[in-house]
């Protein structure tokens, strides 16, 4: 077991610090919500592929050959990228600031 070198009292101080609890709650809720969105979109897509492949072949307009599946597929790729951007923006800003304060205040 790699019992870590950080001293126990510091760990306890951090755990009791209200901002630590705030960080844990906010960050994990945010992370799981975003994961949920990604999983939901992806598995909805996979289920469309499995159950009604024809629906994805519907044309975007009567005089077009392009199916709705094409913009939808590209949309999933783009949304995956946007979701990572949203997470990084908030984590590297708000969450890292909170972490900095916790470190500062538990010294």
């Amino acid at each position: 077991m790699n019992a870590d070198p950080v001293d126990k009292r510091l760990i306890e101080r951090i755990q009791k610090h209200p901002k630590y609890r705030e960080l844990v709650t906010k960050r994990s809720r945010f992370a799981w919500i975003l994961s949920g969105i990604m999983l939901l979109i992806y598995y909805a897509f996979i289920l469309l592929v499995a159950f009604t492949p024809k629906s994805l072949g519907t044309k975007i307009s009567p005089d077009s050959v392009i199916s709705v599946g094409i913009p939808l597929g590209v949309f999933i790729i783009v949304i995956a990228f946007i979701l990572t951007g949203i997470y990084v923006f908030r984590a590297n800003g708000e969450f890292d600031e909170l972490t900095r304060q916790i470190k500062e205040e538990t010294k």
Binding site: L34, M38, F45, T84, Y87, A91
Partner: peptide, 23 residues
């Protein structure tokens, strides 16, 4: 279109890695 289904599958693991594992 089938090629795109694979591409999407290969890609969507990444956001989940970020949210739950990277840091």
């Amino acid at each position: 279109y089938d090629g795109l289904i694979y591409s999407i599958g290969f890609l969507v693991g990444w956001p989940v890695i970020l949210f739950l594992m990277a840091e």
